[in-house]
Design a protein around this nucleic acid. Structure first.
Lengths: 216, 216
DNA sequence: CCCCGGATATGATCGAGAGCATACCCGACC
DNA sequence: GGTCGGGTATGCTCTCGATCATATCCGGGG
């Protein structure tokens, strides 16, 4: 839970008085698990900031194939980040837990961007980091086998050795199928690397997983 | 060939006098085909701008597996784009033709960024677009079969129905092997979609290729 | 002129993983 | 208590594409 937007990654850089002027412009929006905040292709009218809970950004193809691109937690921004002409969301956004978000109109955000280099540089920093991540995942998707990608996804979502995540969610983050995710995780469990339960995986041997994640 | 940097995507937004002050800070650097401008992981000390020729950004894994992430032409920027603390290049950059580039020191660029919202917003626009592309490619790599990815790569690099590209280069852009690229392109040729030569592919049926690229 | 490296081409093999079917478990809800 | 849906589990099959091997063509350099 994030008490205030002054802690959010976008607005950290602003002096307190600037944040104060911003506060009345923000709307709050509670969301429940599975709620889709927006779909890919819709008009990108809002910049969102997670206050509480988690949001995943994903893309879907034909035949219900889904790729999870990013999972965001409190303080992280998403939505109408790009100052591009064609203002449509490039991904869909779905809540993976109950929570709460702020949003502000794209226009307001763009004005903010153009008015203050600090904000623009901060957003650039955020987007750059995501680009670098995406490029690394691209390399991984091109050449790493499914177990490596699953190990990466698992390490990614785990916080201190524990991951609350279904096999399906892992599969969608790793670009594979539920069946493969289940089989690979069973093998990990058999080899003593993890212990699995329903919707939950505990990591026993992080080093070994990292080994596998980096391609043996 | 780009006559002047005022046409480059980064500096388009600057008024002429700002560009004039910038000009003395730029260095020129000629490069020949296959020259590597920098390697992934090296200190990101320069922002580069293509003046003439083409540069590809790529990542390599173990066993000489290479993924081409982007191909840049005149006016496009690359290199130390991200205002992050750990200033290392996140990809390698190699010339795929003879050409020429400008560069300016990362510090100079960062000062420029912080000093002018217009520049920061422009860079943000560029990086955002690349992020959106990378995300779409990620989806594609996760689920599209090799022929679809190859068709995409071919359409990407072709300029009005003609592509000057080797099978290997296409394979590296599509995340597959040379052999597969060759076989798939042969099939395309057999089906009358393209005609191939050494280092060159002409598109005959763009619609059909787009059909295949989007997953049949 | 010969040699070498890179590009294209093609055959043979083989395995990872997708796809499909089925089954079990369990919590939610009627 | 019964039903239903989602998550996990497992077997079987089959295809795509990676891998390995080999061959041809061609341009450039000694």
């Amino acid at each position: 839970m994030l008490a205030d937007i002054e802690k959010a990654e976008v607005f950290r850089v602003l002096p307190p008085d600037r944040v104060d002027r911003l506060r009345p412009l923000l709307r709050e929006c509670p969301f429940e698990r599975r709620r889709v905040l927006y779909f890919e292709g819709a008009e990108a009218s809002r910049l969102w900031i997670v206050q509480q809970g988690q949001i995943r950004l994903y893309k879907s193809s034909a035949r219900a194939q889904i790729t999870t691109l990013d999972v965001l937690g409190p303080g992280e921004v998403f939505g109408a980040l790009a100052p591009l002409e064609q203002a449509t969301y490039s991904t869909s956004a779905e809540a993976i837990s109950d929570g709460r978000a702020w949003w502000l109109p794209r226009e307001t955000f763009l004005k903010l961007l153009g008015g203050d280099p600090a904000v623009a540089v901060e957003i650039l920093r955020i987007v750059s980091r995501r680009l670098i991540d995406a490029q690394e995942r691209l390399r991984s998707f091109a050449y790493d086998p499914a177990p490596a990608r699953l190990a990466q996804a698992l390490l990614q979502v785990s916080t201190d050795g524990k991951a609350t995540v279904t096999r399906r969610a892992l599969a969608e983050a790793a670009g594979t199928t539920v069946e493969t995710a289940i089989r690979v995780l069973r093998r990990f469990a058999h080899d003593g690397l993890v212990v699995g339960a329903v919707g939950k995986i505990d990591i026993l041997d992080r080093d070994a997983l990292e080994q596998i994640a980096s391609g043996e």
